[in-house]
Amino acid sequence: MIWESKMPINEVREIRCKTTVFFGVGAIKKIFDICADLKNRGIDKVVVVTGKGAYEKTGAWKHVVEAFNAHGIQYVLYNKVTPNPTTDQVDEATKLGKELGARAVIGIGGGSAIDAAKSVAILLEYHDKNCRDLYEFKFTPSKAVPIIAINLTHGTGTEADRFAVVSIPEKEYKPAIAYDCIYPLYSIDDPSLMTMLPRNQTLYVSVDAMNHIIEAATTKTTNPFSILLAKEAFRLITKYLPQALMHPEDLTARYYLLYASLIAGISFDNGLLHFTHALEHPLSAVKPDLAHGLGLGMLLPAVIKQIYPVCSEVLADVLSPIAPDLLGVPGEAEYAAEAMENWLRQMGLVEKLTDLGFSENDIDKLTDLALTTPGLDILLSVAPIPATREVIKEIYKDSL
């Protein structure tokens, strides 16, 4: 593998894999063991953070309530988290948790609910702070109450990483935070909870995972572990996503998409992210109804086109399931981008930014947001090519 010769072996880099994840069909039943452990830790009051309905429709809530009752755990439920959760929602959930005296947080849902739960866990330890303080980096947290993540999608990997994303609506900011104190203590990844995902959501969350690994494998801070996980995650997504789209209740397909999402989360927990996420956050900050994975998918081919010349060896290896004839040379950038776009189109992601109401008139504003939103500067700083204003504008323009 040509990329191995390019790995800077004299640079010391972190390798992370910290959360205990209960993985597999039926894993939701492990909530009983988790509640027993919480009780042993002296925790008998929790706040549950979730969205408006999936926590019940999937059947997850039934198991959680039974486990609470079996172990004498009191709880308060906050079920108003929306896609692209807001600082106000986190503050509301935190208030409920503080009123109860909660000493742990359980997030049930996809990335939105779990990221909101992580944010609540921090704020339960900092009584003089609010969520805007947290996401505008007005303080640096070093502690959070224990977090339990019950995952309902196969996309974010947030159940096994130290990241969270919450929007500040009035500023059209969608910042990302990353702190060791918000690794979940335990997570549940049960594919049987995901068979009801609608077709579009199945596609978008899988595209999210795909972006995680393409970015993580190509940052300035990547390591061989990130690249190893990226290759396997990409192989699994391209193999099992078509099956899940055609047969939503196929547990084998859901199992491997969920596994791909999990290891993609660990991949970018190690390698970090760069252009696609840094440039998507402004899109869904301006248009909160925009699905995160859809935004990422619209940007991905343009990002590959920009970065391929300096990451050709790694990307040729990772993208080989959809473009086996890539040689790993810089001149293939256009071809690699087209291969990615063609695959996305085959899966059903055909939209461009203009289809979502964006135009050339929006590019300067989006570029400003990418460059000024708190936290996104960290992602842009590890991009494989300089994240100049011109490069960012070119990616947006190519994605119209």
Score class of each variant (00 low, 15 high):
I9Y: 12
V12N: 13
E14Y: 13
G24K: 00
D33H: 09
V49A: 10
V49W: 10
A54T: 11
K57Y: 11
V64H: 09
A67T: 13
F68H: 11
I73N: 09
Y78F: 14
N84R: 01
V90R: 02
L96T: 04
L96K: 05
G101H: 07
G101W: 11
A102F: 06
I108S: 06
S112R: 03
H127K: 14
H127T: 14
D128E: 15
R132V: 15
E136Q: 15
I147K: 13
V166E: 07
E172F: 08
E172G: 01
Y173K: 00
L185I: 07
I188Q: 03
T202F: 01
M210L: 14
I214D: 01
S226V: 08
I227K: 12
L241F: 08
P248R: 01
E249K: 04
D250C: 02
Y259L: 13
A260Q: 07
A260C: 07
A260T: 06
S261D: 10
F268Y: 14
L272I: 10
F275L: 00
G295I: 04
M298Y: 03
V303T: 09
I304E: 06
A316S: 15
P321L: 12
D325A: 09
G328R: 10
P330R: 05
E332G: 06
M340A: 09
S359L: 08
D364M: 01
T372V: 11
L376A: 05
A383E: 01
A387T: 02
V391P: 00
V391Q: 00
I395H: 02
